[in-house]
Nucleic acid binder design. Structure first.
Lengths: 220, 220
DNA sequence: AAGAATTTTTAGATTAATCTAAAAAAACAA
DNA sequence: TTGTTTTTTTAGATTAATCTAAAAATTCTT
């Protein structure tokens, strides 16, 4: 059995691993779990004893196959519940993260299967993140950050990589919603900020920080 | 803030209080929480410090107004989630208890309000139990146990007071479902078992133990 | 490659929830 | 009403998850 707390560690190690494609540091985990490095060291030893992570002192941590299975199950539940909250209960996409953080730990395979069916087997959550299937398979998608796109290109906004309420509300306000077409008008060299036009009409100005957290695919 | 564990104690004290209309004993709580009396003593002192229960050593325990508010909120959530599981996800009534035990601790007032609306503001859960309103008001219903009804009377089955899967599956098998009309045909004096006929057609024989856990209202 | 800085681990506490065993209080019974 | 039984509480441990402070290992810098 994995506890609520253990599941959170596994989920965070999964996400950090996916970003860096290598071992995850104790400090990186401490930052995301909102705990101290000392607490993380203790937990890593424990998860290692349970064969959920590969861990050698001072060498960072990776998930074992079983650890990854648990992490993907938690992520699948989180994203399915987010779809439920937005599509069925009418929440906005900036309101669902904290509730899904709780719901992701509900333990019932039957429930997940029936929820998935009820939602029509969705492939993406309200932030554009792919939902792992029931075998824990996560589709690999060729998303790029808006910050990496060249001037003049047309792209389609398909996701965000930051889920804070503040960021999502900012996007709503500026008209940057999933499905929007974006054209890069101009790049300011000194701070990498961008002028862009959005398919809905307006041309706006966004910082590099914002552009880094918008996921897009190129339009031919 | 009340923990998962504290909420479970409050819920159980509420249920025992409602049954007996008086102070609840340490042992009674220990039985339902599946813990030892010593653990209950510790927790009662703690809940008392938090002003959630009235507790004097050796004198039993009752809920304070605030304790009752928390208990009713947990019960409201439990019953709303049960409606969701049966009405929306297609679970049978004997499968939802354990899942609802987990979902009842999800903490979000917005979520409860939106779920309630999504479900069409239901007044009863799938077992016929009334759902407290958002102010924590629980309707008082004139339910009787089937075991208290006189021979010859016609009644309507409106609830059950035992939610175990085994009991509910037995009811399904015998055709005893909510909304069924029941007529008492005969009472066996020595073991209080009953012969009844069910509106759906068949006449069956049930034990006193079963009759005690079926809630009915008299039909004029 | 040696010293400084950073990161990570260990040692030793703390808090919440639980337990067993023993003591204390209350209830029952003759 | 006094002794016995039952119930409840206290005392002292245990486990999970966390912390601070200090020690150890690694990495950076010149």
């Amino acid at each position: 059995m994995t506890s609520f707390t253990e599941e959170n560690y596994l989920k965070i190690i999964y996400k950090l691993s996916a970003e860096t494609n290598s071992e995850v540091s104790t400090n990186a985990v401490a930052e995301l779990t909102q705990t101290k490095a000392a607490s993380v060291s203790d937990m890593l030893r424990k998860l290692s004893d349970k064969q959920l992570v590969n861990y050698q002192k001072y060498q960072g941590v990776t998930l074992t196959a079983e650890g990854e299975r648990v992490a993907l199950s938690v992520i699948r539940k989180h994203r399915l519940w987010e779809v439920f909250l937005v599509a069925k209960l009418g929440f906005n996409w900036d309101e669902v993260h904290d509730i899904a953080e709780q719901l992701e730990h509900i333990d019932s395979e039957e429930l997940v299967a029936k929820l998935d069916e009820f939602l029509g087997f969705p492939k993406f959550d309200p932030h554009g993140d792919p939902i792992p299937d029931h075998n824990g398979r996560m589709p690999v998608l060729g998303y790029q950050n808006l910050s990496e796109i060249e001037v003049g290109k047309n792209v389609l906004m398909v996701g965000v990589s930051e889920h804070s309420s503040a960021f999502l509300q900012y996007l709503d306000k500026t008209g940057l919603i999933l499905g929007a077409g974006i054209t890069i008008l101009e790049l300011n060299e000194f701070d990498k900020s961008l002028s862009i036009s959005i398919s809905s009409g307006n041309a706006i100005f966004i910082s590099h920080e914002v552009a880094k957290n918008i996921l897009v695919i190129e339009q031919k």
